[in-house]
């Protein structure tokens, strides 16, 4: 028995467990973990919502989504590095950020639209696997192109782009006292961005004519086409929007020290995005938001446990994938998913 225990990665942490449990349930800790979790959730939701829109309508699991986020991070970072100087004040920096969001969204949406028309549209009638494969190939190309461009300008493609991170306003870099604990400004900013993104997407889906088309197309694209909706154009628009959203998530990540603009960001964001989309149920925006919150909170909790009790670096990441497996076992269609979607 002791041999088995020695094999376990958690061996040295067993006696600590009860003490740490007590420490975890202090209001201060709980509040910190909650804010941390919601901030992570906001990022996850922003990364995953584009993916979920595209899958819900077109049934294409877009493997290139992470690369779009990566391109967005570099593009946004470039814009901010060019405009923001040492003396630029905080309000101006936030303004530049807002401008960056618009520019990144526009550029990537245009790019996504072109991709859809040029590459994905010709293979809609093929089995869904081909579309997965095509976007998988796109990831290879985009990542390598990014690596070429980035190293051409003398940056390290693997490590985070520090210059872009330095354009962050000072307010966001500092700690702020809030209720019981001090919280970093960046996390609050991320939460605000996340809420804004969710509200905008929700309004688009439920209050605009195009959102109506999207929802109708997700439900039954043939029927929508029969009723006179130009489904092909809706497909293009949604692919463009989804790609743009991925890019916007990227510009936010360029400021976050635990992510940062780098080429591996593509893969690092792709996997959590998949997890969130699958847990929420493929193609439901509501599910994605719920799953994002779930994954974010659990991630934050596990990060705290790792930092304070369990000496196993991979704990948060492993838990996220375990949740994916458990959710799929218990509820294969995801939390809010409809059974028919995705089970080709």
């Amino acid at each position: 028995m002791s041999g088995v225990l020695a094999l376990s990665p958690f061996a040295d942490s067993v006696p600590l467990f009860v003490d740490t449990l007590g420490a975890f349930f202090r209001p201060r800790t709980l509040f910190g973990v909650l804010v941390d979790g919601v901030a992570k959730a906001a990022l996850y939701i922003m990364i995953a919502s584009g993916l979920t829109l595209i899958f819900g309508l077109m049934g294409v699991l877009n493997f290139a989504h992470g690369s779009m986020t990566m391109v967005g991070a570099y593009l946004g970072g470039l814009l901010m590095v060019l405009v923001v100087g040492q003396e630029t004040g905080d309000p101006t920096r936030l303004l530049v950020f807002g401008l960056g969001v618009v520019v990144v969204f526009a550029v990537l949406a245009a790019f996504g639209g072109l991709l859809e028309i040029g590459l994905i549209r010709p293979i809609y009638d093929r089995p869904p696997l081909s579309q997965i494969l095509l976007t998988f190939g796109l990831t290879l190309i985009l990542d390598e192109l990014a690596r070429i461009v980035v190293s051409f300008y003398g940056l390290q493609p693997i490590s985070e782009w520090q210059a872009a991170m330095a354009t962050k306003p000072d307010v966001l870099g500092q700690q702020h006292d809030l209720v019981v604990a001090s919280v970093s400004g960046l996390k609050l900013f991320e939460i605000a961005c996340g809420i804004l993104a969710v509200v905008v997407i929700w309004v688009f889906l439920t209050r605009t004519r195009y959102g109506l088309y999207v929802r109708a197309g997700s439900e039954d694209s043939e029927m929508a086409a029969a009723l006179g909706v130009d489904v092909r154009r809706v497909f293009t628009v949604v692919f463009a929007l989804g790609t743009g959203l991925g890019g916007v998530a990227g510009i936010l990540l360029a400021w976050d020290p635990s992510w940062g603009a780098s080429v591996p960001l593509a893969v690092e964001t792709l996997l959590p995005a998949f997890v969130v989309v699958i847990i929420g149920g493929l193609g439901t925006f509501r599910g994605t938001v719920a799953a994002g919150l779930l994954v974010g909170l659990i991630d934050a909790t596990m990060t705290w446990w790792f930092q304070n009790a369990i000496a196993f670096t991979g704990l948060p990441e492993m838990t996220i994938f375990l949740i994916l497996v458990i959710v799929l076992v218990v509820r294969p269609q995801g939390l809010f998913g409809v059974e028919e979607v995705g089970g080709h």
Partner: peptide, 13 residues
């Protein structure tokens, strides 16, 4: 117990 994309994703998980 799963199929399609879900099968791919659970084995990935």
């Amino acid at each position: 117990r799963l199929s399609g994309v879900y099968f791919a994703m659970i084995t990935l998980g």
